[in-house]
Amino acid sequence: MSKKNLVITSITLTSIVLGLIISLGVLGPIPLTSIRPLGLFYALFMANRNITIEVFPLIVNPGNFWAASTEAITAILWDYRGLDTLFETSVFFFAIIGSIALFRFTEKEEHEIRKKTHENHASEGKYLGLSLITKTITKIILFTIIVVSAAIALHGQLTPGGGFQGGSAFAVAPLLAIAALSRFYLDDIGFKKNTMLLLRTMGLLIIALLAIIPVVAGIGSWQAYIMQNQPKEWAIIQLFPPKGLGVLLGSLVYYNIAELLAVGAGFTIIFILLSIPEEFYKKIIEKEGVEHG
């Protein structure tokens, strides 16, 4: 057991050394009372179109850094470091592609398992899912969750929230439906695996298109930039109206909707895959083993 003790000792020593180094003030004065210049820059210029601020004397035209958002975090996510977020979304995309590759099955096999489950339940005289009262209330709650997640995503540029947050909130809906109403309910209301795959591919494609559209529209004039989200002062091509319906719009709201589609549909696929019983997969693995020797 000396190996285990070695691991424990080294982890403890590293923790103590790290704690001492940080408490000596490596990460800034302790405790921090002033805000860092980078964070201050984003916070001051995201909704500011015309006020020059003394803290940043070099910036004479603040409209160039305008992000049409009153919330600094969404502004940073989809404007100041938008390309970064696009690629992070694609990491999420490929992780779910990997999960689907592991838990693969054809539509014919899915149809078989559905028929068999219904037969089993009919022969034992049972219903799928919980009691009728629970089912009705769950349906109401499902509707509420979807509305709330859409509200979180659509208000992303004004209040705390956004595509990621809305998508995470949406993820609870398929989970609840599978637990209370059985997984065939998701199929019946159209939340099939392939539909969800299509939806999340669409979400990623919308994000990519929104990033490229300004460049395509600006060919010849050389006044547009990739992921040029907001109508900046100096740009000739100004695609996304900054105001509409009485609130700030910009392009952030479109990115948030696309992100909600990508994240929410991705989670639905994961729960559909997880809800399929284990005997079904064992049969598929055995069959593949026979086919490939």
């Binding site: 805000i35 964070g39 940073i76 470091r81 992780a95 592991l102 956004g162």
Partner: peptide
């Protein structure tokens, strides 16, 4: 506003980290 707010840069980095973390966790669970 500048005298009252927290730093907006760490939350912007963490919000993607949470979603990516979860995608990776789900992949390893599978």
């Amino acid at each position: 506003f500048a005298s009252q707010i927290t730093d907006p840069v760490p939350p912007a980095l963490v919000i993607t980290a949470i979603v990516i973390n979860m995608a990776i966790t789900i992949l390893i669970t599978f």
